[in-house]
């Protein structure tokens, strides 16, 4: 009788707890124009994010940004060249993301032959909001890796990555956990 081969190998298990570098999340500070574009795309018209006068009357005392904004600051530095052109030069049918976007302080890859990656879910804890001019720092780690069986009987891994974000004073802003299905 055939025995199912586990994908949760000792090498995969050893990744739990592995941390990336503590790095600055962005090449630039939290600034008003990037925040405007983000909030309009989010469809959040909250004046706490753009109206200086009103923001001074709130508990924050100044314009703040949605906490989740910090997780999108890893934009391409001008010094990194043009990753989009590079990706399509290497692969004319690039999906536009492979080889284009790389997280700063990225974690080493999980050693598995399960190549397909699906976004399974997110978890957020919020403590403080970023403000204009803040420099944002972050550190990621593999929080957990579990094995599941798909509805078709195929094995899959649920890989949860935790990232903590801080401002330049070392204040914890938020913690995000993203779970990905590897199958």
């Amino acid at each position: 009788m055939a025995t199912a081969v586990t994908k949760l190998t000792p090498e995969v298990k050893a990744m739990v707890g592995v941390q990336g570098e503590f790095v600055e999340a962005s090449w630039w500070v939290v600034e008003k124009e990037g925040l405007r574009r983000f909030c309009q795309a989010l469809m959040d018209p909250d004046p706490r994010y753009w109206d200086d006068e009103f923001a001074r009357t709130t508990r924050y005392g100044e314009v703040v940004a949605p906490h989740i904004y910090v997780s999108y600051l890893g934009r391409t530095s001008p010094s990194a060249g043009d990753p989009v052109s590079r990706a399509f030069k290497e692969d004319p049918v690039s999906d536009g993301i492979g080889g284009v976007w790389e997280a700063r302080g990225g974690l080493p890859n999980v050693p598995t032959d399960l190549k397909r990656i699906l976004n399974a879910g997110n978890e957020l804890e919020v403590y403080q909001l970023p403000t204009l001019g803040d420099r944002i720092y972050c550190q990621s780690r593999y929080a957990s890796i579990a094995e599941r069986t798909g509805t078709d009987g195929s094995p899959m891994l649920i890989v949860t990555t935790e990232t903590a974000y801080y401002n330049q004073r070392g204040d914890l802003l938020c913690v995000t956990r993203a779970s990905a299905i590897r199958r």
Binding site: I68, Y72, A120, G121, N122, L124
Partner: peptide, 28 residues
Amino acid sequence: TWKQSVMPQYLKDLCLPDGWAWKVSFQH
């Protein structure tokens, strides 16, 4: 990522002006 941003926004607005949307988690 849009859903990941809208859900906390929704909870934030429920709490305004002086409550706090502490945690949210969801599956896609």
